[in-house]
Structure formats: structure tokens, C-alpha cells
């Protein structure tokens, strides 16, 4: 606890404690906006920003906030960051804003955000919290991108809107529809269990 910066606070979020595959948190946006890689990366970037920002703020004010009001305070901090992101996206990238739709403001109730604020940022210094947010955010982005790559290539034969499987490919449409998302994450989890051994999460 003495060192100001511990690299593991950054690295653990990317794989060891990947919020999606190991902690099973924040699944809603993961499935909803993973039908195209472009949307997935947009969501990931927004998520990294909100998580890092809220983690830093929570950590910064952690000594000021009395124990019994900390949850509402964290919620306000998170909601503020989410709204700022919402408006900035609407102003600078209306296209992306439109395709993320209601899932962007719904980040407020994403369990990763409140979970990290409560479990990590409220107990650690600002720098570590920032890196924790960054790591978790990147872990989330990685997970969402993997799912989006699978769904977009199989479902549309494209990647970032560019055709990759050739003209003759008949799209496996179900992949970009809701059931595809559930199937992909189901198989990915099984794969993770298989290669990662039976780790208790």
C-alpha cells in the first residue's frame, strides 16, 4: 500500500480480473452494441473515459465522504461523467451517438462502474485508481471487440464496414440479431473455462 503506483492495478483488469469474462459484470452494453466493431470500439472508448474519470474522482474525494452517504455520492459522480460523455458524443460524433442509443446513458447502472468505485477507488490513491479504471476499461473494450469481430464477420461478412469474406459469402444473419450475441458469449465463456482452467471467479 506504500508505493504510489502498482502496475498490477492496471494489468489485472485486462485479463486476470477481466470484468466480463471473470467477474461477469456489465453484460448489458456488451451484448447490445457488439453487432458491429465500430460501435463496440466507440462504446469501449466511452466506457474507458467514464470509468477512469469516475474512479479518479471517487478516489480524490474518498476521505471527504462520510460512510453512510457514499453510495449516492458515487452514483452522482458516475451519472455526471456519463452525461458529459453522452453530450460530447452527441456533439462530436452524432452517428455513433445514435447507434449507441439508450445504452449510453444506461452506463450509469453498469455494475462495473459502481463496483470499481466501491471496491477499489474508495480505498486507493488517485493514480492507482486511474490505472485500475484504465485497465478495467481496456479489458471491457477487448471483450466487447472480440465479440463484435466474431458477430460482424459471421453476420455480415464485413469488419468496420469493409468486406472481408468476399462477395460470395452468404451472411449468417442470426449472428447480428440478439440470439447471436447470447450464443457467442456462451461459447466464449466455455472456451475461457476450457483454456483458463476452472478458476473460481
Amino acid at each position: 500500500m506504500n508505493r504510489i503506483f502498482k502496475p498490477e492495478s492496471f494489468l489485472k483488469g485486462v485479463w486476470q480480473e477481466n470484468p466480463i469474462f471473470f467477474l461477469m459484470l456489465g453484460l448489458c452494453p456488451l451484448l447490445a452494441v457488439s453487432s458491429s466493431l465500430r460501435d463496440a470500439i466507440g462504446m469501449g472508448a466511452a466506457f474507458i473515459f467514464v470509468l477512469t474519470g469516475s474512479n479518479m474522482t471517487v478516489s480524490f474525494i474518498r476521505k471527504l465522504v462520510p460512510e453512510h452517504v457514499r453510495i449516492p455520492v458515487f452514483i452522482i459522480v458516475i451519472a455526471t461523467f456519463v452525461t458529459v460523455t453522452d453530450y460530447s458524443l452527441a456533439a462530436f460524433s452524432p452517428q455513433l451517438h445514435k447507434s449507441l442509443g439508450v445504452y449510453l446513458p444506461l452506463m450509469v447502472v453498469n455494475c462495473i462502474l459502481l463496483g470499481r468505485a466501491e471496491a477499489f477507488a474508495s480505498k486507493n490513491n488517485v493514480i492507482n485508481s486511474a490505472f485500475d479504471g484504465l485497465g478495467m476499461g481496456i479489458g471491457f473494450t477487448l471483450a466487447i471487440s472480440i465479440i463484435a469481430i466474431i458477430r460482424e464477420t459471421l453476420g455480415q461478412g464485413t469488419l468496420m464496414g469493409i468486406n472481408v469474406l468476399g462477395k460470395d459469402y452468404v451472411p449468417f444473419l442470426i449472428m447480428i440479431m440478439p440470439p447471436g450475441a447470447f450464443l457467442v458469449i456462451g461459447f466464449l465463456m466455455a472456451l475461457k473455462n476450457n483454456i483458463g482452467g476452472k478458476k473460481k471467479c
Partner: peptide
Amino acid sequence: LVLLLIASISGFLLAQTFRVAKPRI
């Protein structure tokens, strides 16, 4: 008091963001 303080800071920040973002949107 803490809740009020945080809420008003948040409200102020959001109002500023909105003021900047709205014409752009």
C-alpha cells in the same frame, strides 16, 4: 451537506457541458 455539495458541483458541471455542447449538437 456532502451530498448537497457534490450534487451542486455535478449540476454546475453538467450545465456548463450542456451550454457548450448544445450549439454544437
